[in-house]
């Protein structure tokens, strides 16, 4: 009897056992992996939200919790709107060509009505919340020709008063303008693009 001879029958059995137990092992990992998926469905819903801006002063900003996201509404002054004209060379996407807003907001002021800006206040770099720096002029850690806008405290990205990102910062997209409609002069519906939606 040769000692080197492989017992093919046993070898086949060994391979089959390895394949089967391997499959079983992988199948056992599956429930562990999917157990980590989110279970709270409400996290995903972006329910339309009605906001009243009657009390929003000219030149002021309000923050609304919209499905867990900070929604900013800003009533811009004529001077603020004027500041949007000057800075297009310093901006990365001055014409709003990236799909960061609904089609009715592809304009200079990135809004339906020139004065009222509606944006999601989440930095397009890594999701921190930028801070309003509306006062123009030189300030600590701000560029000397600052026209007013937003500064992200995490990595220093800057945005103008239409949420457009400046060049040479870490953020590469303008702030997101969600779909919204005016139900009346002072009532906004966020998250819907036509009335009654």
């Amino acid at each position: 009897m040769s000692q080197n001879k492989v017992n093919c029958g046993r070898r086949r059995l060994l391979a089959a056992t390895a394949v089967l137990s391997g499959t079983g092992g992988l199948a056992a990992i599956y429930p562990l992996v999917v157990s980590l998926m989110p279970t709270d469905g409400s996290d995903f819903a972006e329910e339309p939200l009605e906001v009243d801006v009657a009390n929003l002063m000219v030149g002021a900003m309000m923050t609304v919790n919209w499905s867990g996201k900070p929604l900013w509404i800003i009533r811009r002054t004529p001077a603020m709107l004027e500041s949007l004209l000057g800075s297009s060379e310093a901006l990365l996407d001055p014409q709003s060509q990236q799909p960061q807003q609904p089609s009715n907001c592809v304009n200079l002021h990135r809004s339906i009505r020139p004065d009222i800006l509606v944006v999601i206040g989440t930095c397009t770099h890594l999701g921190c919340l930028p801070i309003a720096k509306f006062r123009p002029g030189e300030a600590e850690n701000m560029p000397a020709d600052w026209q007013g806008g937003f500064l992200c405290p995490c990595h220093g990205a800057t945005f103008d008063l239409a949420g457009r990102v400046f060049k040479n910062t870490l953020a590469k997209l303008n702030l997101l303008v969600p779909p919204h409609v005016f139900l009346s002069e002072n009532r906004l519906l966020i998250g819907a693009d036509k009335k009654g939606a």
Binding site: M37, D43, F44, L126, G127, C154, H155
Partner: peptide
């Protein structure tokens, strides 16, 4: 916020990033 930033860093991985971050985080935020 430091943790939020790290997860968003992962979310930037092409193709799988967003789902990977969601899976690791266990929620949208």
């Amino acid at each position: 916020w430091g943790t939020t930033v790290i997860f968003n860093l992962l979310a930037g991985i092409p193709l799988i990033g967003a789902d990977l971050a969601l899976w690791l985080r266990g929620g949208l935020a």
